[in-house]
Design a protein around this nucleic acid. Structure first.
Lengths: 335, 335
DNA sequence: TTGAAAGCGCTAACAG
DNA sequence: CTGTTAGCGCTTTCAA
């Protein structure tokens, strides 16, 4: 009963031309207050709502951008989406979310007519086009920005994980002690493998090198991305040493496992055993976990801004923006 | 370079009328093989892809339905979406996903022009319209099906959690012993509170009542929805008794906490201490956890089917479908 | 089996 | 400041 009401009906009731109604609806300023009021009254009276399809058809703009990402519901992606949403809202844009939940979905997104490409622009989060699509070619040709991953052919916004690792390293070095890194094994065969953990390790090593501190190969403990992985790492470390230690967990989830397992063995983290995580998960503060915090919202916001710009007028060159993380010091790394 | 190619261009190159091209594109059968071939050749040659916006505009159909849900990425919602996707694909439909990630998003979805309502139909998962919207009125008036929750005014597909609890109860009763239920506290003030945990408890109690077994009030232990909640519950139970016990955890996550904490105290679940969970999480099998499994994919598929029917021709009355869960017996509840 | 043509609802020149 | 009007690309009668 609503779709039947068109701009024509509004014009008629308001006693003006359709173009005038259109102008009011789109917030043009060259309309007298009087007509504007008349039109708005008619709109409300009829319960008129613009036909979005007609608008899109006419303008060729959907006022929406698609975000393809591995999943939704983690702290990282929630924050990222919030950052994107916030900027888009300022420009009357919306974000359509397309998580790669199943292989079937990925398959469908290979089709250039798939819903994600039915938008004015595309944000690819944590996803490498080279791994996702044949030839690294995104099926549809529309303005694209990558987030959390870099690529020569596309605009990107990333966080400098090398710097993040470096910050953790410098901080732990304040009190020398046997040092361990707990790593995640990144498989190469998934579309999600972005190499961030290796970068974090690299930065950490760089910090140590600057101070001529050696990190023995077997002090890099590789486990699964899980709480249990952290616990296993803690056991491994305890097997190898007693007394002070510096530990860098390449993500907070691992750090949590470490803390819990240490607590279990009656060891409180912070003091003798110092620990720095990565991500600043929501619970990190309550855990007293020192950690590297990424500017995730900013990353999303920047990506959205870049994309909107590219939608307006495709710029000449590819743009890469790299953001700096910062270290949040809490109990777990106090001396 | 692709959007510029229209059906006109194809018609011209193929030497036919646009209406003929349209017919071929839409798979009508009253087209000679010869023209069909000509058209298809032209389509490929030009790399033509139909303008989706024009199509939607013309037909008034988007060939998509929106799914509003609390989040994405949990096993439950992944399976639900898969079930929905599968059925929709059969009918050339797509699902747009709209998770309620933040209050801002919910606020936006109160607007009848918001993206979710720009579809042919709507699926609301685990979300009660009464809590979500003023007066329980969905902002836009379009075919709607609820999933995982029931409502007098809308079609719905749900799982009978009372039956699920009942199954767990009957099973545990096979070997009488002091019995505990670990519950989740459901707050009333969130849009997500659906009351499923209370239903599970209710069914469980019903099973006990049938055999005249009493469940003391203080044998219902209420904790948070978390792994730690399960651990706390385990500690509580251990404090109160030694020897055999039957435990019903109203969700697998709690059950996992229980198992881990028991293991910790050197107690293997299965045998003396018997445990049944709920949900059949992906890891449940590896944990040897007996659990109640919901037909989630079927629920999604059914909802999609119902919605498609309602889109075709709005049926007269509200339809409610209730599915039965089933019990999966594994090590954790073996006698 | 095919073609001609109307028009979906809206925006954006262009005139006035 | 406001009205007139020409389509955007497609589907769908209606005729042939």
């Amino acid at each position: 009963m609503n779709t039947r009401v068109s701009i024509q009906d509004v014009a008629q009731l308001a006693g003006v031309a359709v173009s005038t109604v259109s102008r009011v609806l789109n917030g043009y300023r060259d309309v007298s207050e009087e007509t504007r009021a008349k039109v708005q009254r008619a709109v409300e009276q009829l319960g008129y709502r613009p036909n979005q399809a007609a608008r899109t058809f006419r303008t060729g703009k959907t006022q929406s951008v698609s975000v393809i990402l591995p999943m939704i519901g983690t702290d990282f992606y929630n924050r990222l989406i919030n950052g994107i949403d916030q900027v888009l809202a300022l420009h009357d844009y919306d974000a359509g979310l397309f998580p790669l939940l199943s292989p079937r979905r990925l398959e469908r997104y290979r089709n250039p007519s798939a819903p994600p490409y039915n938008a004015d622009g595309l944000i690819l989060a944590s996803l490498n086009p080279d791994r996702l699509f044949e030839g690294g070619q995104i099926p549809a040709d529309l303005p694209t920005v990558l987030v959390d991953i870099a690529h020569t052919a596309y605009d990107s916004v990333t966080v400098d994980h090398i710097e993040g690792g470096y910050l953790a390293g410098k901080h732990l070095l304040e009190r020398p002690a046997p040092t361990f890194v707990v790593m995640i094994e990144e498989r190469f065969d998934t579309p999600f493998a972005s190499g961030v953990f290796r970068e974090r390790l690299k930065g950490f090593q760089r910090a140590l090198e600057e101070d001529s501190v050696k990190l023995p190969k077997d002090h890099v403990i590789t486990v699964e991305f899980s709480w249990d992985g952290g616990r296993l790492a803690a056991q491994e470390i305890l097997r190898r040493l007693e007394g002070p230690a510096n530990i860098f967990a390449t993500c907070d989830l691992l750090a949590q496992g470490l803390i819990d397992e240490f607590a279990h063995k009656g060891i409180k983290v912070g003091g003798e055993v110092r620990l720095v995580g990565y991500d600043d998960q929501p619970w990190a503060e309550a855990y007293g976990l020192s950690t590297v915090k990424q500017p995730i919202e900013s990353m999303g916001g920047l990506a959205a801004n870049l994309l909107l710009k590219r939608i307006k007028r495709p710029p000449a060159e590819v743009i890469h923006r790299v953001l700096s993380p910062r270290l949040v010091v809490r109990e777990s790394s106090r001396v």
